[in-house]
């Protein structure tokens, strides 16, 4: 093996390790929903290339209102779906759309776009 080959091999493998670490490990911590005067646990979610925040922590038994605001035109993100709560909402670009539901069982619930490219997690405590 010539030195350039060693270089490419080591470089390639470290790149693979980086991809694995970057995309699959080291998930961001969730954001706790704050309770508003109307009795809802509210969180503002920005939709742009993903959900910010993408992990939301709420308490069970209290109504949740997630205000989605989509700031992109990619058609993938035009819907957000909470399959476990049978809820979905159209997200027109530039509008804030509230999604309301009542999580009554603790657990982790995924939400995302219709194609599953964008995903977020709702942790019910």
């Amino acid at each position: 093996m010539t030195p350039d080959r060693w270089l490419v091999l080591i470089g390639g493998l470290s790149l693979v390790a980086f991809i694995v670490w970057f995309f699959w490990m080291n998930r961001a911590k969730g954001v706790k929903a704050s309770e508003t005067s109307s009795g809802h646990q509210e969180v503002m979610v920005l939709v742009k290339g993903g959900y910010t925040p993408d992990t939301i922590i709420v308490r069970h038994g209290k109504p949740v209102r997630l205000n989605f605001r989509r700031e992109e035109t990619a058609s993938c993100s035009e819907k957000v779906i909470f399959a476990d709560f049978k809820k979905s909402a159209d997200l027109p670009t530039g509008e804030t759309v509230p999604v309301e539901f009542l999580p009554d069982k603790p657990g982790e619930y995924e939400f995302g776009c219709a194609m599953g490219m964008f995903r977020g997690k709702l942790i019910v405590e």
Partner: peptide
């Protein structure tokens, strides 16, 4: 870029 910010 939007995706990378979310590590996706």
């Amino acid at each position: 870029w939007d995706g990378l910010k979310h590590r996706s």
